[in-house]
């Protein structure tokens, strides 16, 4: 079975991203597939490559990136929600004339249609939010 996960809250502020991560890990361990992980609302902040959590704490973005690398996960950040919150990849920063970008290369930026398509294509869509 395959799942699309929708994550609507930022890292550390809320447990949503942690819960989704643990769920994804358990699902993959059981042989299920993750069709897509879609980051929306403040959830786009999970994609920052610039976070420096204390050394005794988990690194949520790197955890997602490692899981994505191991299982070739499609991790999509909503472009509209990301732009609102100052989350840009290098292409977008160039296009918008900004002097920096902050999105981790394990994530890609795309439109909201990717969420709807994720709901259509996956067997289940789960929302993790507040």
């Amino acid at each position: 079975m395959n799942f699309t996960l929708l994550i609507n809250e930022g890292p550390y502020q809320h447990q949503a991203s942690d819960t989704a991560y643990q769920f994804a890990k358990a699902a993959l361990e059981k042989g299920h597939e993750i069709y897509r992980v879609f980051f929306y609302n403040d959830g786009v902040n999970n994609a920052t490559r610039l976070a420096i959590p204390p050394q005794d704490d988990r690194n949520i973005t790197e955890n997602w990136a490692a899981l994505a690398k191991e299982h070739e996960l499609d991790m999509v950040v909503c472009i509209a929600a990301a732009q609102r919150r100052g989350m840009l990849d290098a292409d977008e920063a160039g296009r918008q004339g900004k002097d920096a970008d902050n999105i981790h290369p394990a994530f890609r930026i795309s439109g909201l249609g990717q969420l709807v398509e994720g709901g259509i294509q996956a067997d289940r869509l789960l929302t993790f939010g507040d």
Binding site: F3, Q22, F23, K25, A26, A27, K30, D123, L126
Partner: peptide, 11 residues
Amino acid sequence: VDYAGFVDLVA
């Protein structure tokens, strides 16, 4: 339930 059980519930 544990996380594996959570996954089973969803499935």
